[in-house]
Simulated assay, not measured.
Amino acid sequence: MTFSCGTAEEIANALAASGLILRGGFGFGDDEVAPVGPSGALARSVLLVGQAGAAPWPHFQRWLGRQAKDIANPLDSWSREVIGGVAKEFGARAVSPSDRPYLPFQQWAMRAEGLKPSPLGILMHPRYGLWHAYRGALLFEDEISVPEAHEAIHLCDTCVEKPCLKSCPVGAYSVDGFAHQACLAHVRGTNGAPCRAGGCLDRNACPYGAEYRYPSDVQAFHMAAFAGVRILPDRTET
């Protein structure tokens, strides 16, 4: 069975109700080791689900306001709930980047959208810059007709100044990789207030996709989750 464009549009519309979008997809080859689908048979196709900018944030905040205050990994839980509901509606299996054993989400994303990693490790999108994310995927046991992905323009190749490697006070990102412990110590320390309040300075220095940049409260939420500090947004319904 091949899903029609109308069905793909219905899936996209169901996700849009929570601010999420389809991020491309592909079919698994006969020689690939594919994950299993909803019935336990091998999946034939996958659709990536994610976001561009902070569109899901109001939906997530309303959901968060109804949860216990000590809920663990709230954004992951919300994403699982939303994508799981869509999966049930359309006969798919929902999977998450945090599922174990880990699934190759970054490889899937590069294959589905033709993207490449930035110096920060985040995939660079020609429209969204670094301000996008993948929240899950839908696995189908049928073939899905999706547009073939072509290699996207990799903006990092034409960026001469590389401000994303020059803005961190402790040089956490470099051509040698990510200095995780140095970043963590800085964010948690006395001088890390700008990072805690407004997000990664290196990421914010990137000039691309600025119109999709996450608001400061969204960036503070993600930084709190990364550093294990209490900087959560107001739990009010908006």
Score class of each variant (00 low, 15 high):
D234F: 03
S145M: 12
T190Y: 11
G114Q: 07
A172F: 04
L48R: 08
P215W: 05
L138P: 08
S45A: 15
G50F: 11
R203Y: 04
W131G: 04
G121Y: 08
P74E: 00
G209P: 05
I153Q: 02
R62M: 10
P169Q: 14
A197C: 09
Q106H: 08
V36P: 00
C159K: 02
A16V: 09
Y208I: 04
R203P: 00
A54S: 14
S174A: 13
A12P: 07
T190D: 11
F105N: 07
E10I: 05
L123S: 04
A43V: 09
S98L: 14
A12K: 05
R62W: 07
R80F: 02
Y102H: 13
Q219D: 03
Y134M: 10
A8C: 15
A14C: 05
D157M: 09
A193V: 15
S167Q: 10
V36T: 15
R203C: 06
A152D: 06
P207I: 12
G37F: 08
F90C: 04
A68V: 12
K162I: 08
S79H: 09
V49N: 08
L120C: 07
L130Y: 02
V187Q: 01
N191K: 13
H59F: 15
E161C: 05
H59R: 13
H186D: 10
S4T: 15
L75C: 01
Y128L: 05
A137E: 02
S18I: 00
V146Y: 03
D217I: 02
E211D: 13
G171D: 08
Y208S: 10
A112S: 09
A8E: 13
D99P: 07
A133F: 09
S77Q: 15
C200N: 04
A94G: 01
W78R: 03
R196L: 10
H186F: 15
I21E: 10
Q181E: 12
Q106C: 05
G129A: 10
A182E: 12
